[in-house]
Design a binder for these strands. Structure first.
Lengths: 130, 130
DNA sequence: TATTGTTATACTCTATAACTATA
DNA sequence: TATAGTTATAGAGTATAACAATA
């Protein structure tokens, strides 16, 4: 099961890398940007917990996304230690396109599955790790 | 989909590493040994194709498994360039136990799924990458 | 004392180029 | 010329320890 899930993931990621390259987003960048996009003000720690990343490995990603003007770091309203991460207008525009591209490639890569099977597959996978 | 498949795979692999450590087998070692176990005489190239590995990364694995006395390298009957990989009695004995352990942990890790759902999940995953 | 974010660094995994021996 | 196996090495991904600032 672990083997098959890994092979399926790598198969999708292979096409993902190709299709999302024009946006300058690798899978981890995409998942970070997507989480910030749909949860403005999220902190680094929350991102790490949600995406199963380690804090030291997130630092460079955040710095890179900020340098590209895709996100902004704002002081957290209630915690002076934390920093809220917000998408810029440019980041929002990029993610709207990137998420459509990702959705399209996912359907293409799972073209041997029906829509119902795609939903079943997602549900079963999440029952394993959530 | 790629994200969920990866998270599920990593979740299973995490427990796999723990449970198979007593056998000295990491996931890639297990899949290599399992393929040799069930396909005695298989070549390195065939292993690479079946498991999606690159030849340079297989060399060290094979040498390690041979040094541990789990496999033997025998001349290929029809191709002087190739080497057939065969499990030793010790390797067969190890894999019989290791495969049972792996099967058990897989059922445990997917305990929120029924047997029918486990089969469905495997079928759907294979439809993506095969 | 615990937590957020960070730096430095080590370790593992994966990928590429080039070589040899044989087909 | 093409393929099997190998070597060396580069690059990406992942991991731990330790630190400053704030709770």
């Amino acid at each position: 099961m672990g083997y098959n899930a890994r092979r399926a993931a790598l198969s999708i990621i292979e096409l993902f890398l190709e299709r999302l390259a024009p946006y300058g987003l690798k899978p981890v960048d995409f998942s970070v940007m997507s989480t910030i996009h749909h949860n403005p003000g999220v902190t680094s720690r929350q991102l790490c917990a949600a995406l199963n990343l380690l804090p030291p490995n997130l630092v460079g990603l955040i710095q890179s996304l900020e340098a590209r003007g895709l996100i902004e770091r704002k002081p957290h309203p209630h915690d002076g230690r934390a920093v809220g991460l917000h998408p810029t207008d440019q980041g929002i525009a990029l993610m709207q396109q990137a998420e459509q591209t990702a959705s399209d490639l996912e359907v293409e890569k799972t073209s041997r599955l029906t829509a119902a099977q795609r939903k079943t597959l997602l549900d079963l996978l999440q029952k394993i790790y959530l």
